[in-house]
Structure formats: C-alpha cells, structure tokens
C-alpha cells in the first residue's frame, strides 16, 4: 500500500517536471523559439514582394520582377531579398537597381521633372474632357429654347 502511494507520488512528480506546451491567448500552440523567426521570415517575404512589385522585369513587357516567371526576374528578386537581409533600406535597394538600369527599372517613375507629365496629364485631360462635355450638354439644352422662341415668333397670331 505504502509502495503504491509512493509510486503515485513519484509519478506525479515526474509528470510535473515534464514540460507541457502552453496555449497562447489565441489558442495557438506555437514554440516560442520559432515564432519570432517565422514573423521575421514573413516580414522579409512581404518586404521583398513589395519591392519586387516596384521593379520592372528587364526581359518582359510591362511586368514586375514579382509577377514575371523569367529566370532573370527570379535572380533579381533573390538579390532584393539578399540586400534586405544585409540590412539595406527599401530606398537603398531601389537605388541599387536604378544605378544599374536607370529609372526605367522603376515601374512607377519618380514624380519629378519630365516624369510629372505622366502624373499630371491624365487628370488634366480628364478635367478638360469633363469641361468639354459640360459645355456641349449646356449648348444642347439651350438649343430647344432658341428653336421654340423663333418658332413662337414665326407662329401666326392667334385670334
């Protein structure tokens, strides 16, 4: 009987010493060592994707290196990731590619100098078009009054 009690106590002590996984507030069962690394990996992936979306694939037509399946794009994307890992900022990474390929490599040109045409012309044309349509509609809606006035003038007097 005593030995059985002793066995139960020892068993309970051993079980108490075995580390048990803790549940987080979200109910997830994540090892604390892996969690930050995964977060860092996902941040790295997200930064790489964002930057790769801004860079033009040199061997494609209007595709970013993120969207292009070409070998060169994949190599450029790997280089983007490598530069991020080495501690370079987003601006540094973009500046590197601009220094090699010129501003052409940026899918969205910088809003300065002649590039401003690309940013300003579409809204200007839109406004000009809207003004044109408004003037046209105004002239259309004005015409019937003129016609009715003249037809009224030409109409024989009522007796």
């Amino acid at each position: 009987m005593t030995s059985r009690v002793l066995g139960v106590v020892l068993g309970a002590a051993v079980l108490a010493l075995v580390p048990t996984p803790r549940l987080t507030a979200q109910g997830a069962n994540l090892p604390p060592v892996i969690q930050p690394r995964n977060a860092a990996d996902s941040l790295l992936e997200s930064r790489t994707t964002e930057l790769a979306r801004e860079l033009r694939c040199p061997v494609c037509q209007g595709l970013s290196i993120q969207d292009s399946p070409s070998e060169l794009s994949q190599q450029m994307r790997a280089l983007v990731k490598e530069q991020i890992v080495s501690g370079k900022s987003d601006e540094d990474v973009l500046a590197y590619f601009v220094s090699k390929y010129g501003e052409w490599i940026l899918l969205a040109p910088k809003a300065r100098g002649f590039n401003l045409v690309a940013y300003l012309l579409p809204p200007l044309l839109l406004v000009a078009g809207a003004v044109g349509v408004w003037m046209l509609v105004k002239s259309w809606t004005r015409q019937p009054q003129v016609v009715s006035a003249s037809s009224g003038a030409e109409a024989p007097p009522e007796d």
Binding site: V59, L72, Q75, K100
Partner: peptide
Amino acid sequence: PGARTAIDYGLYG
C-alpha cells in the same frame, strides 16, 4: 552564378 555580375552591369539580354 546567379547572374550577379550581369545584374551589376544592368544586363537585360
């Protein structure tokens, strides 16, 4: 390897 020199020289073809 990895076309690193090619990218360094702004190669596109």
